[in-house]
Computed example of a mutant assay.
Amino acid sequence: MTDDTPDSLIPYDEIVQEALRAVVGRVLGQVSTMGGSLPGNHHFYITFKTQAPGVDIPQHLRARFPDEMTIVLQNKFWDLKVAEDHFSVGLTFNQIPAILVVPFAAITAFVDPAVDFGLQFQASVEDMDPEPHEDAENDSAGASIITEDGSNVVTVDFGRKK
């Protein structure tokens, strides 16, 4: 964009972000209707802001991941439930079971490495600088979500003027 481009009065970036987060909800919804098992080699890395409104995770996880955390849905998860604006899932962290509730608005990345698909979102929580973090060490944890190899990662950023 050039400096001559006017500011939009239509919040396109917010509309697109919301639509792409709905993709995550639809995918998780399909998995939940299949009894919570993933087909084939599919597995998901889901990164979210731990301080975002509506996020409900155990205090020990919030202390360990004060800004952002990545969970892996692969082999050992249970009770995946999907609502219009959030999902909940059971995972084990260091052999301690936990139920996590994550609003779709808190998600910053969704990756399915089995098919080289990924979505990255602008943070919904204002004034939070992302910090490097370790992946959550649940029983199905694996690689990180760095995809600089030309995979199908969609990043939406309309370069809002400030």
Results as ranks from 00 to 15, higher is better:
Q59N: 11
I96A: 14
E137K: 07
V55K: 01
L100A: 02
L61E: 01
R26A: 09
V111C: 10
H133M: 11
V101R: 10
A123T: 08
L91A: 01
A105N: 03
Q95T: 06
L73Y: 08
D127Y: 14
W78G: 12
F158S: 13
V125G: 00
G142T: 11
D112G: 04
R26T: 12
N94H: 12
I15K: 03
T33Q: 13
K76Y: 15
E137Q: 06
D85H: 03
D149Y: 10
I145F: 12
A114T: 07
F110A: 00
D129F: 04
M34K: 11
V156Y: 04
K162R: 15
N75I: 05
G36N: 06
D112P: 03
D56I: 05
P11S: 05
E148Y: 09
Y12K: 14
K81Q: 14
Y45M: 09
A141M: 14
W78H: 09
D127M: 12
A123V: 05
T147C: 02
D79M: 04
D3P: 08
P97V: 08
F110E: 00
H42C: 02
Q95D: 08
P58D: 14
A52C: 03
D56V: 08
V102S: 07
Y45E: 08
R64Y: 10
F44G: 02
K76I: 15
S32N: 12
I15N: 03
D149T: 08
G29W: 04
S140I: 11
V102L: 12
D3S: 13
N138L: 05
V27F: 06
V101E: 09
P103K: 00
E134N: 13
Q74Y: 12
E84F: 08
R26K: 12
V16M: 06
Q74W: 11
A52T: 01
D149G: 09
Q120T: 12
I146E: 11
V16P: 01
Q17T: 01
I99F: 06
N152D: 11
I46C: 01
V102W: 02
P53K: 03
D127H: 14
I57K: 02
D13E: 07
G90T: 01
G54L: 00
D67K: 00
P58Y: 10
V102C: 13
L9S: 11
E134T: 11
F77A: 10
N138Q: 08
L9C: 09
T92M: 07
G25V: 02
A136T: 12
Q51T: 06
G142I: 05
T47A: 09
M1V: 11
H42W: 03
V16Y: 02
I146M: 10
E137M: 06
E18L: 04
G118K: 09
R62Q: 10
A63Q: 14
K76Q: 15
H86E: 13
I96K: 15
A106D: 01
S37A: 15
Q95C: 04
P58N: 13
V72Q: 05
Q51S: 10
L28D: 05
G159H: 10
Y45A: 04
Q17L: 01
V111I: 15
